[in-house]
Write a protein that binds this DNA or RNA. Structure first.
Lengths: 130, 130
DNA sequence: CTTGACCTTCGAGCGACGTGAAGGTCTAGG
DNA sequence: CCTAGACCTTCACGTCGCTCGAAGGTCAAG
């Protein structure tokens, strides 16, 4: 299959696939006679794993490392590595959520002061406060 | 005062202050005889507003626009502009939080399957699933 | 024979900084 | 007087993960 089919099957753009290949994140695929990239089911699986790990928030290099373990039939190692990453990720997600909560409260406060036509209070919030 | 004092007073790094100046986000400050940047209280206030708007999640150019309105004593216009931005921001924050919730559930699921030494289930989640 | 949807490579751009080199300046201490 | 070190200056390149545009090749349908 060609690059756009791999792309739609894995939910990323053809440009992203080519970018991964250029960065060594994905191996160079076979080529058709006309020079087009030619992918098979194993490529789909590997790319799917990679994309899934990215969607979990793992960084690109780490996702690549784990996806290549999986492609080498070392799924146990992959699972171990992933488990290690998950702790950090869940902490990061919790922290991000706390930060968003804080931010939402701040936005709500500000919206109230502005809506109450109390620019002074808003200015204080922005300039003097804290 | 010099750049590092402005930086500590506003909670950003000296490099960030210089970056803002280079991008035209902050005006070029006075210079001391030795060439060092020389900031006054008005600069502190303007930078503080800018940083506060950034901390609310507004993008840099929009923050710059509003901060400059404020510095021109057009705080009413600034307040109006800010109020307009807030709606979009609160929506974005809510969406980001929903996404984080979804992600956290997914991470928890995966951690359970991996912890249960059920790599098959995990693989399905990553490769076949969805 | 042309249109249009694919594909190729290459290089640059995005946002918002961070980092490092290579050097100038000032202050305190020995 | 010398020196260490804590500032400051500019310039340019690195980060992360793509995304876009240009300039061209390939192929099936009409």
């Amino acid at each position: 299959m060609r690059v756009s089919e791999l792309a739609t099957r894995t939910g990323v753009s053809p440009a992203t696939i080519r970018f991964y290949e250029a960065e060594g994140i994905l191996p160079r695929p076979a080529r058709q006679a006309n020079g087009y990239r030619d992918y098979d089911d194993a490529d789909v699986c590997r790319t799917q794993v990679l994309v899934s790990l990215r969607n979990l928030g793992l960084d690109l290099r780490e996702s690549a490392r784990l996806a290549s373990l999986c492609a080498d039939d070392r799924c146990d190692d992959m699972a171990a590595g992933l488990l290690g990453q998950l702790r950090g990720r869940r902490e990061a997600v919790a922290a991000a959520r706390a930060e968003l909560d804080r931010l939402d409260a701040e936005l709500a406060d500000l919206e109230r002061s502005l809506g109450a036509r109390d620019p002074a209070a808003a200015s204080v919030n922005l300039c003097e406060g804290r």
